[in-house]
Nucleic acid binder design. Structure first.
Lengths: 243, 243
DNA sequence: CGCCCTTTTGATTCCGGTCAATTCCTGTGG
DNA sequence: CCACAGGAATTGACCGGAATCAAAAGGGCG
């Protein structure tokens, strides 16, 4: 398992403009890949944080949980995504495999940092990846803070469609549970279920089965089934309108 | 105005462990500083994005606005914070001065990137800053997604106290309006006002005047006036418990 | 001094959460 | 291959926290 189905991507960022000769290829020599079971923890907040990670295949979730059980999924990690990029000694979140057999490559942080120090292209690429991750998470703040349930689910489906490699036409695979989607969007699982039903009813999407659907009317999704769109934070018909 | 009241910090990150001889000092030679009026735009999403920026003094807000008037402030930018770090050609957000006379240093992106390419320490420092920004915005997702109004306001006050340079004891200056706070926390301005009153009533804070307050019971703030605390995403009594 | 914007406080509404009850998968073992 | 068990998903009824609507009080700047 080499896991080079394309260049390394930002944690949930889309691909950079230049795809040729990824400078991070040199990182692969330092990688160790491990398989995880569904629900298995890849790292926890109190781990020493001596590695960076990359999803090779499958899917993972990065999340925080409160003592009273509230959970927030900060990110879904898809194949190609780098994660665990920190300078501190402790992670802030836990990362767990979402699907059975998720493959994760692990890179020793020190070695990568040395590599970045000696090869400016590696350093630059990592910076780009980090900048894209910042862009992505700030865009998610807008979704979490100011969107209705319908808009949240719509944005989620569009995001997933954009990011998924294994998408045929507009077919989307929802590998995660309704609970995961709920905690990603800061909703209740019941609300996610209801909203998906409503979007199906209104014809914005077609629900093939519980974990497969197809986007029929992308514009309706972006507008939350309702009206308006974004002025300042929006970019015409760009790939990821909230980015 | 040289603006070196300490090392450059991540956009809203706290200070790094090593404070001596900041590698970014070399950046200052390339800086141009401008003063902005209260409410004045520093950049807008459709600007060409050929610069990086740093707050020298005052305060700025990074925000998105919908066509129907909903606004989300993604970040308050304080003295020392770097912002506008992107690789794309367009910003995602608008940045505006919050206080009259806010001073912003502007660095040509190309030149800084060249500098980072030639001096690994600069590249590394920028990476650290970016990683801290990621940590900060992901921590904010938890606040936006899963906290009550009281918890949000409490977390905001603690964050501001931590980040503010000009804090005397536990005195905090709220330079921004209730509307700004509301849009930062994804609440209504009325809710912010109400919650501050309640926190004053309950003795968690003391309201000196409209834009000055003092934290009396920090623990009460962290717990939203109620009970529980965080398990996984929390770090004992660390400086910024949501980081 | 006075206008206007900001803030506070109160009354009411509503979206999404919570509680509850089926139904539907999926995987397991006979 | 089919029956069964247990979690996942859906759907409905009701509730509650924060938004919205409204109005009064406060404060800053001309």
């Amino acid at each position: 398992m080499k896991g080079n189905e394309g260049p390394v991507r930002a944690a949930n960022g889309d691909c950079p403009s230049q795809l040729v000769s990824d400078p991070l290829a040199a990182m692969e020599a330092l990688a160790a890949t491990t398989l995880y079971h569904r629900g298995e923890e890849i790292y926890s907040p109190d781990d020493p944080a001596e590695h960076w990670y990359r999803v090779v295949s499958g899917m993972a979730r990065k999340c925080a949980v409160t003592a009273d059980g509230r959970r927030q999924i900060v990110d879904f990690l898809l194949p190609g995504d780098l994660f665990g990029l920190i300078v501190r000694h402790e992670h802030q979140f836990a990362v767990e495999a979402v699907v059975e057999g998720t493959a994760i490559a692990r890179y020793p942080r020190r070695r990568i940092e040395m590599l970045a120090g000696s090869d400016p292209r590696v350093g630059r690429r990592i910076r780009e990846i980090a900048f894209e991750a910042i862009a992505r998470s700030q865009a998610r703040m807008v979704i979490l803070g100011r969107m209705t349930a319908q808009e949240k689910v719509g944005a989620f489906l569009i995001e997933l469609a954009e990011r998924s490699r294994e998408r045929l036409a507009d077919g989307i695979v929802l590998a995660m549970s309704r609970y995961d989607i709920a905690d990603y969007l800061a909703l209740a699982a019941e609300t996610v279920s209801r909203t998906l039903s409503e979007l199906g009813q209104s014809g914005a999407i077609r629900l093939e089965d519980t974990h497969r659907l197809r986007i029929v009317d992308r514009d309706a999704l972006e507008e939350g089934g309702g009206e308006q769109g974004w002025r300042q934070a929006t970019f015409g018909r760009r790939a990821q309108p909230w980015l």
